[in-house]
Write a protein that binds this DNA or RNA. Structure first.
Lengths: 235, 235
DNA sequence: ATTATCTATAGATCTATAGATAATGC
DNA sequence: ATTATCTATAGATCTATAGATAATGC
């Protein structure tokens, strides 16, 4: 059939810029997949090169070394996720005016990332798993969490404090601590709940998570912070 | 001084059984520490041998290979923790009689392990971090979580279902999912909350966690399961 | 003339084992 | 006679780089 087409487009080779972009993206995607399955040290550059169908030397050519590669993988998605989260927060604050709720803030905190991870894009799906690993890794993991998420975290923490006036600061921080634990574990999509529920729930089902997580934490955080508040009143 | 003591005890060498016990324990402790810091693949048997001050071949002599070593490390503490958790649950159920509360069950689920990790024993402290890593690792991590914690998990899940009659099963499973996320992240003691709170909170402070986690989840789980209950009533 | 990709390889690990040695056990 | 420990090393990676090659860019 193709041979009957008269003015066949020449098999124009892609420009260098395009090839650079395409190859480095393929390496990043492969690394993202493997890192999310086995962690930083569970993956060799040979694994990445093989998965990306390039030679190991090309991985060095584009990303210098393994640490840089990991950082590049992480940066790509973290930046996009942060933009979405800040936007969700700003939108919600504007929409809610004088009456922002705890539920609304927790929702702005969690839902944008959950939606990205659950969107069907395998890149973001893998990135979610990666966040679960990094957030539970001391040392370099924590350094990376700080570098990429401290700004957003502090922004949300300030809002939580404002919305819970009179609550003890420690209580707000601890609530945030639990929230991030449940949140990043949800992003990790480990499959554990699938097994325990005999297939009733799926850890990749971000809609179910987005629906329940804010509800649970809105009630739970209010309970902790208000109980403290109440016990402080009598004095 | 020592030379003045008349009947000096001879420098009796430890028996083979004692030396075996002592050396293998030192290897386990060293491995536990390093695995908790860098994960399974971030540690080499040479690292372990160096930390334990033995030759690499001794690690093989006692534990065959790296996987077996990791399993041995994990088993030692997991068994003890499980016993403590089941005992806490049984004790609570007996004590509470007809009126077990959500708070009481969540407390039995979390507090025993939190106490062990916070007890000051560096072995359990490291083990906590290890659980954080393993629970956020797919593949072999999940296999290990299943093997060591499925029995306890199912036991608690049944109680949660009983104590929340009429709640939708999915809601109970999702609550459990969030609970384990917050719980294992707390065990991991990553130091993130220390930084975000400028030193006000410490992620190694298991007492503060044990005090708040059950309260938050008791209120949060009730909120989700009862809201569902309420919306199901009209029909 | 520059850039993307490939070839070849150095040098540093890492796991694992075979076999020797020096104690303890009986 | 058995067991804990040490010596030595094989064989398999793994990271990283130097230098060649074959395209594109101008």
């Amino acid at each position: 059939m193709a041979s009957t087409i008269p003015d066949e487009t020449p098999p124009r080779r892609r420009s260098q810029k395009e090839r650079r972009e395409e190859t480095s993206t393929r390496i990043l995607d492969s690394a993202e997949k493997l890192f999310s399955e086995h962690g930083l040290h569970g993956v060799t550059l040979r694994d990445v090169a093989y998965e990306a169908k390039v030679d190991t030397s090309l991985v060095h050519y584009y990303f210098s070394n393994k640490d840089q590669l990991f950082r590049s993988v992480f940066t790509r998605r973290a930046s996009e996720a942060n933009v979405a989260r800040i936007k969700a927060l700003d939108d919600y604050l504007e929409k809610s005016g004088d009456n922002p709720t705890l539920h609304g803030i927790v929702d702005a905190f969690t839902t944008p990332a959950l939606r990205l991870v659950g969107s069907g894009d395998p890149g973001f799906r893998n990135f979610g798993a990666l966040v679960g690993i990094v957030n539970n890794t001391p040392g370099w993991g924590q350094a990376m969490m700080s570098e990429f998420f401290d700004d957003v975290s502090r922004r949300f923490l300030e809002i939580f404090k404002q919305i819970l006036p009179g609550a003890r600061e420690e209580d707000v921080y601890w609530c945030y601590h639990f929230l991030t634990g449940a949140f990043t574990f949800s992003l990790a999509q480990t499959g554990r709940i699938d097994k325990l529920s005999d297939g009733l729930c799926h850890s990749t089902d971000m809609d179910s998570i987005a629906e329940r997580l804010p509800m649970l934490f809105a009630a739970g955080m209010a309970s902790i912070c208000e109980k403290r508040l109440a016990s402080a009143q009598p004095s």
